[in-house]
Each structure stands twice: as structure tokens, then as C-alpha cells.
Design a protein around this nucleic acid. Structure first.
Lengths: 225, 225
DNA sequence: CCTACCGATCGGTAGG
DNA sequence: CCTACCGATCGGTAGG
């Protein structure tokens, strides 16, 4: 809440207060958070013990407390990384002016982001009730921004006739669900994130929606029929 | 696996083996399962203790074992009720011949079913890794049937040009995600299941898709544009 | 980053 | 459906 609100993994630098966290420390920290996400995904937050985590990292449980204040903080670090990653990717779509292209890019980015980090997003979506209340408030604020970005894009696309004239919030939740759900069924070997993202775009925007980014020169085609 | 594969809450009838479970017993059983779903939704399966459940039912923990063999079985009963409810509702859409109407009905039923029982589906979707392996296999089989029904409906709608020509499995997962996600954000006081269901239908099938059931006389209209 | 250890919680059982 | 209770697990700490 006070001085350390800046970013990712700043809290608890090294041992000495006035030193930057060493690169080794930061790397180990990242490794801990990533492994924790995998364990909590597989077993759930409560059943995934710190002994499990320590074993996976070839440590003793007590050593984890050198990096993390509590198991609850560890969960928060996973949540924060998930929402921050997703938010920063999504925000890069905001300068696309064409409503149809903007919505297509949001859909694609969202589907691919989640397909790429299924562990983090499994924990993010399924362990929410386990997040301590104070951490929860912080996450919820970012999540609201997320929803608002999608709702605005839906409203703009509807106004232009690129999609049906749906209510913005419901339309946004529908699209968020469609794309987020990927973490439940996606299998990296079998499934292709790009192909699935395109399916979502086709379903919502009609068969020949623009690919993404500035690259494609805005191929405008009539929707299905 | 053997003789008791028939249905809902048949296992462990009364105490005497040859008697039907009494109505009071069945009612109490239902109450236990419903309350457990609420507790597991709020706290998760592991953190929601049998003491919590017993307290909510005004019982002692040990008394729960009169009704349920283990906590694991209790979880299974929740899963089984969730998937069985959803499956039987969805199967009533299968006799709709028009692909567009059939898909619309599936979308509507799915969204409304889940919005109506958020506790059961929260547990179903979020506590899956906690389900014991033998129970899991049984649930997975029913879930596959579920997916296949949606995939077929998507393929039929695509063949007719009612939706974009997407790959059936991806299209089905997209629609399942869009509608299932409702349990994450739906607030009974604020939100309207029907309105959201219609939003999903409009988004996928274009602005003026049929309402549902045999009632609406197949209003065919050109999709968005 | 480790060894040793504590207090609390929890699923489940005995026996009625 | 209850009282009493056990064994195991787990987050966390002391102290280095």
C-alpha cells in the first residue's frame, strides 16, 4: 500500500534493506512462483502443500520463507502475475481504431495469453476464494479495468454493426468466457492457440474478420450468410 | 459399477438393506448435498470442512457419516447432480430439427441451467482436481457426451451457413465457455439469465435468432451486417 | 538456506 | 444421530 506498490516482485529485496535484489534472488523467486502455480493448478491451493513445493524445487519447506512471507502471499504473487500479464497485453490493442479490428485483436490476445500460461490462469480463475481479502481488492480493481476494456470494444463494434447490437456488459462477459475457458480444455500438444483464437473471432465477427495487428490491411467482408 | 449405476442418490438406502430410503432420508440427503455445494463453492473443497457443513445443517460432524461414506463421496454427489441436470436438459434440445434453432436452444439451456445453480457448477468446474480418480472417470464420460452434442450442433449450423464455418470442436468449446462462464460473474439480483442467454445467441447466430423451443415459428433473418 | 519442532485443524472411527 | 477421541498433515517459527 505504501512505497512498494510499483510492481511485480519488489517486496522483500535481499536481506539487507538498502540493496537491490540480486539477479539470482529474482530468478529463484520467479522459479518459486511458477512452480507454485503448477502445483496449485494440479492439487488446488489448500491441498498443494509447501512441502510439495519445496520438494519440487529441491529445498526444505522452511527455506521458502526466505523468499515469501506466507503461503497467502505466494498465492497473491501468482494472481498478480496473471492479471498483470493479461492486462498489459490487452492494453496494446487499445490504439487500434477500427472497432472490428480492435475487438478481433482483443479476442485473439486474450485467447492466446491464457492458452500460453494455463497454470497461472487456472489458479487465477479457480482459486479466487482462497485469496486473502486485502489482496483480493487489488486484483479486483485490475479485473474491472479488464472488463471495461472489453465492454467498450463490444459497444463500439455493435455501434458499427460489426456484431449484433448486444448489451455491452453481457457481450463482454460472453467473449471473456469464450476465450478464458481455454484453460479448462486446451492441450498444448493437440491444440493450436491461433486456430482457436480464429474460431472465436469467426464466431463473433463473421467468417472473414481481420487477422490481427496493423499487418492485415483491414479486409472488410460481409458477415456470414 | 455394478448394480447401483442407475441414478442419483440410491447408494446407502436406509440402515436395513432391503428397505427403500425413506422420504425423510432422501430429503435430508438432498439438503446435505446442496449445503455442501454452497460451502465448497465459498471456501473450496479442502477448506470447507465437514464441521462447517455439520454446523450449517445443525448436526455433529460424525452424523454426516450416516448419510455419506466419505467427504470424497460427497464431492462426487455434487458433481453427479451437476452433470446429470445439465445433460438431461440439453438432451431435450436434440429433437429440434432446424440447426439454427437447435443451436440457439442449446445455448439458451446451457446458460440458464448454469445461472440457476451456481453453487453446483462452481464446484463442478473449479474443484475438478479434487475429485477422486474413479469418480472422475464416470463424470468425464458424461462430459464427453455433452461436448459431442454441442460439436454436432455447431457442425450442423455451420453446414447450413447459420454460423461461420468453424471447426466443430473449437466452436463447441467456445460456446461452452461463453455460456458456462456465467457462474463466475452472475449476480441473481442484478443479472437476468434470459437476457444473457439471448446475448449469447445474438452474438453467435446474428441479431434475430429464434427464441427457443417449438414455440417460435422459425423466424429466418439474415445475420448481422 | 537447513534442522527441529509446535499448535491447530481435520477426516474419520469407536461405540453407542 | 451423538460424545469422545485418534492419527496425520500442514503452515509457520526458533535459531542458526
Amino acid at each position: 500500500m505504501s512505497a512498494d506498490s510499483a510492481g511485480t516482485a519488489r517486496r522483500r529485496p535481499g536481506r539487507p534493506r538498502h540493496t537491490e535484489p540480486s539477479p539470482e534472488y529474482r530468478a529463484r523467486m520467479t522459479e518459486i512462483v511458477e512452480t507454485a502455480a503448477q502445483i496449485f493448478r494440479a492439487k488446488g491451493y489448500d491441498a498443494g502443500s509447501l512441502d510439495d513445493l519445496a520438494a519440487a524445487l529441491d529445498l526444505r519447506k522452511a527455506s521458502l520463507y526466505y523468499y515469501v512471507r506466507s503461503k497467502a502471499e505466494l498465492l497473491y504473487l501468482i494472481f498478480d502475475r496473471a492479471i498483470s500479464t493479461a492486462l498489459s497485453r490487452i492494453e496494446s490493442c487499445l490504439d487500434i481504431e477500427d472497432p472490428r479490428e480492435r475487438l478481433a485483436s482483443l479476442i485473439r490476445d486474450q485467447a492466446i495469453t491464457i492458452a500460453q500460461e494455463p497454470s497461472f490462469f487456472s489458479v487465477f480463475f479457480d482459486q479466487r476464494p482462497r485469496l486473502a481479502a486485502d489482496y483480493e481488492a487489488e486484483i479486483r480493481a485490475k479485473e474491472r479495468r479488464y472488463l471495461r476494456i472489453f465492454a467498450k470494444a463490444v459497444a463500439a463494434a455493435a455501434a458499427e454493426g460489426a456484431i449484433a447490437p448486444v448489451e455491452a456488459r453481457y457481450g463482454a462477459q460472453a467473449i471473456l468466457g469464450m476465450t478464458s475457458w481455454v484453460y479448462k480444455w486446451f492441450e498444448p500438444g493437440r491444440d493450436d492457440p491461433e486456430a482457436f483464437a480464429q474460431t472465436c473471432i469467426d464466431l463473433v465477427l463473421g467468417p472473414s474478420a481481420p487477422a490481427a495487428r496493423p499487418s492485415a490491411p483491414g479486409t472488410k467482408t460481409a458477415p456470414a450468410g
